[in-house]
Design a protein around this nucleic acid. Sequence first.
DNA 1: GGTGTCATGTAAACAGTTACATGATTTT
DNA 2: AAAATCATGTAACTGTTTACATGACACC
Lengths: 184, 184
Amino acid sequence: MSIHYAVLGLLGYRSMSGYDLKKIIQDTPFFPWSGNNNQIYKTLVELLDAGFLTNEVQHQDHSPSKKVYTITDAGWAELRRLAKAKPEPPEIRNLFLAQLAWADALSSGELDALIDGYEAEIDAQLQLHEEQRRRNAFSPRRTAREAAIWNSIHENIMDFYRNERRWAARLREALARIPEEENA
Amino acid sequence: MSIHYAVLGLLGYRSMSGYDLKKIIQDTPFFPWSGNNNQIYKTLVELLDAGFLTNEVQHQDHSPSKKVYTITDAGWAELRRLAKAKPEPPEIRNLFLAQLAWADALSSGELDALIDGYEAEIDAQLQLHEEQRRRNAFSPRRTAREAAIWNSIHENIMDFYRNERRWAARLREALARIPEEENA
DNA sequence: GGTGTCATGTAAACAGTTACATGATTTT
DNA sequence: AAAATCATGTAACTGTTTACATGACACC
């Protein structure tokens, strides 16, 4: 599952340019691809070569010309094939867990401040995501089912952050239960 | 926060060779570094050059000679400095969410099978982690607090998987609530 | 005799990000 | 006058993974 799938899916929704794709990919938080130029334009050439897309140059009066890409029948077949593929397990890359691993070197005040910092970071992410969803929100609703799916995807992300918040609270409780002696 | 921190932390626990570090890093699931040779041996040279480590060659009769690395005072200071650093937000890279995004192209049977696959993957990861923790378990317990911290780190990972499982169940419920028409 | 462990290192391949390049138009 | 938007592309850099290289010993 690579960015090729996301591009095919978006072009399955509607034909658009690399520039459009870039913007949507960049502010869709659950796409794990940064959506930089290199990635997008290379992907489009590859999908074109594979016969999954066609393109058409559109000249515009007050903006530069753009290449509008359209998905082909072979592209739809590929999209369906990838959609059915065996799911990959999620990868969590939480540097904070590694940081905690040696946090016993800190005083209890410093450790407390560290957990504060993590909670603040989680809250910031949660807010960022809520805002992003309200403002931007490319969210296809071609069918009731598709709307439910996209809703569920966003819920997954929110759940993750809420879960982290609960865990941090339990960490504090666990630390509070330890008699303070040498770590003042 | 890079692999340098993990290496300093491990050598703060006890002096050891690159080979030992490699094994521990590779099967500690919450360290987000693969621990391949390139990474380990390069890091050790860098930490040595920075004055955070010293090393000593130990000749062995029935195995190849090894370089045993020991943390210096400057290394301890660096470890503490990194431990206090501002936490970074966790990165989730869940390809399954991207996969779901275009799963409305599937029949409800295929979508159901897809969710089955994800749940199976989550269960497999959960079991893998439980097993890894039981078997291997490099888990420092120099103080009661350190034991609590490591316990909490593992709980974080387990919580994540349990949370995913609950979310998948809610996704199924949401899909069941949708009247089936065109997506048979 | 083949496979696995101990042990250190390098080289090549691949993926990803940032920065560069161009240039018209629009907004501050 | 400067900065941002639209629009496509390339180059350079960084980071990561896989594979290669060596060699003794132990286990089946």
